[in-house]
Design a protein around this nucleic acid. Structure first.
Length: 465
DNA sequence: GTTGAGCGTT
């Protein structure tokens, strides 16, 4: 939504006012990159409002201070809400722009771009030539009306690499043959992701993939997107993986002080989509406010809401996983930086069971030094093993505060539900905590949820040696 | 007359 940064909504516009007139008026403040008068689709009559986009968003402040009279009407200029915000209007009163920047839907990865505003004269060749500057184009489509054969003004372009897509999307508007076109990630028309690209990796990205899981569940629930991205980027696995397994995923958040709570369940893909439901609770622990991850310096102000979001779980849940072994769960963006971790770990040893994904974030609360933020991480199933190895993920977050560690791994259960377990295997003194987590998991298709609770109380003692 | 349009084909 970068383009929305410099975008103004203009209400109360006279029916006589044209785009040119608007532009003329607003150019007194700075370069206007686009003006748009909204009209009724059928009648063509102006609806009385318009949008104006300034090339430099910082100009808005000044524009907003003045009164504007155009064609004899005093119009009202406000910052434009993103389309998303619009649907969600309601609370949070007035201020217009608080949360922009995350755009919810639409972030799902696809290597296809929707291009709107194409000039009718544009040929597929010209279209393609322009975008090839960004990377290898695998497919180009300009849409025409089936009956009249007239260009419909939009088309699609597919790239071979994500990078190319990202580069293109870096700007919402592109100048193609002298006209402006708008690019967006193509909507998943339907799940037919697959084929095109050969690499498995690629496939992984498409969230919506198979099984109907609905992405919305998380989209809606939180701003997961934001977190997902990095992940995907790095790793390769898809967040939501498409696949099927029915497995479980859950996550929970642990915390120290006792709180435990269970997380929420998530239904993994299997069925239910409950989605995350609950994130809130989950992490929510009262003390959590500073939990480890969440980026930013400790202590920095952040709203509770944010916290939750970030926390781990996020994504985690879904984490995907692969059959056995490994999992990627991973945790969210820890502050520590490593989000990476995910990758799987070795099958080797362990055993694995099938389970998977989860993630959770544990964290500690705030208590000072001890705290252990971290949490979690990834875990793979593994038998006994060395957790350490995977700790990575978790660790990350943790470090920031010193405590360290996170994570663990443990194995857990199997798909069949047996949960329980704690597994002990691991535990590193430094971390303290063990916990057993638990989770039961349901049989595969089910949903599962939950959580683990537990507390780690001990977590805080690590330093006592 | 006050918050947007367009999303597919083989």
């Amino acid at each position: 939504m970068d383009s929305d940064q410099g975008k103004l909504f203009i209400g109360g516009v006279s029916w006589e006012t044209t785009e040119e007139k608007l532009k003329e008026h607003f150019e007194n403040y700075g370069e206007v990159s686009q003006t748009l008068i909204m009209r009724d689709k059928n009648t063509g009559r102006p609806r009385g409002f318009a949008f104006v986009v300034f090339a430099d968003p910082s100009i808005l402040d000044r524009v907003l201070q003045d009164r504007h009279t155009i064609d004899g009407r005093t119009v009202e200029a406000k910052r434009a809400l993103s389309r998303e915000e619009q649907h969600t209007t309601s609370r949070s009163g007035g201020n217009s722009n608080a949360g922009r920047s995350f755009t919810g839907a639409g972030n799902i990865k696809t290597k296809k771009i929707f291009v709107g505003g194409l000039p009718p004269t544009l040929t597929e060749e010209g279209f393609c030539q322009y975008f090839e500057n960004y990377g290898h184009v695998t497919d180009v489509v300009i849409m025409y009306d089936q009956n009249t054969q007239r260009p419909r003004g939009f088309g699609f372009i597919s790239f071979e690499s994500e990078e190319a897509v990202d580069n293109v999307l870096h700007k919402t508007f592109h100048e193609l043959n002298g006209k402006m076109v708008e690019v967006k990630r193509a909507l998943p028309k339907d799940a037919n992701p697959g084929n095109g690209s050969r690499s498995a990796g690629g496939a992984g990205y498409q969230g919506y993939g198979s099984s109907g899981m609905n992405t919305t569940s998380y989209d809606g629930g939180m701003d997961s997107n934001r977190y997902m991205q990095p992940q995907a980027a790095g790793g390769g696995f898809s967040a939501y993986g498409s696949s099927a397994y029915g497995a479980t995923g859950y996550g929970y958040g642990a915390s120290n002080n006792g709180v435990g709570y269970g997380g929420y369940g998530v239904g993994a893909y299997g069925g239910a989509n409950a989605g995350y439901t609950g994130p809130a609770g989950a992490y929510g622990s009262p003390n959590a406010p500073n939990s480890g991850y969440v980026s930013g310096p400790p202590g920095a102000p952040r709203s509770p809401w944010n916290n939750q979001a970030s926390s781990g779980y996020g994504s985690a849940g879904y984490g995907a996983n692969t059959g056995y072994t490994a999992t990627t769960a991973w945790s969210g963006p820890g502050s520590g930086g490593n989000i990476s971790a995910p990758t799987g770990q070795s099958p080797g040893g362990a055993t694995s069971y099938g389970n998977q994904g989860y993630g959770f974030g544990g964290y500690g609360g705030n208590e000072g030094p001890y705290v252990n933020p971290g949490g979690y991480g990834a875990v793979a199933g593994r038998g006994a093993g060395a957790p350490s190895s995977n700790a990575g993920g978790g660790g990350g977050g943790a470090d920031i505060q010193g405590a360290g560690s996170g994570y663990m791994g443990s194995g857990y259960g199997d798909v069949n539900g047996n949960a329980g377990y704690q597994n002990a295997g691991w535990r590193d003194p430094s971390q303290g905590g063990g916990y057993g987590a638990s989770q039961a998991s349901g049989p595969a298709g089910g949903q599962v949820g939950y959580g683990g609770g537990y507390s780690g109380a001990q977590a805080r003692q690590p330093q006592q040696q």
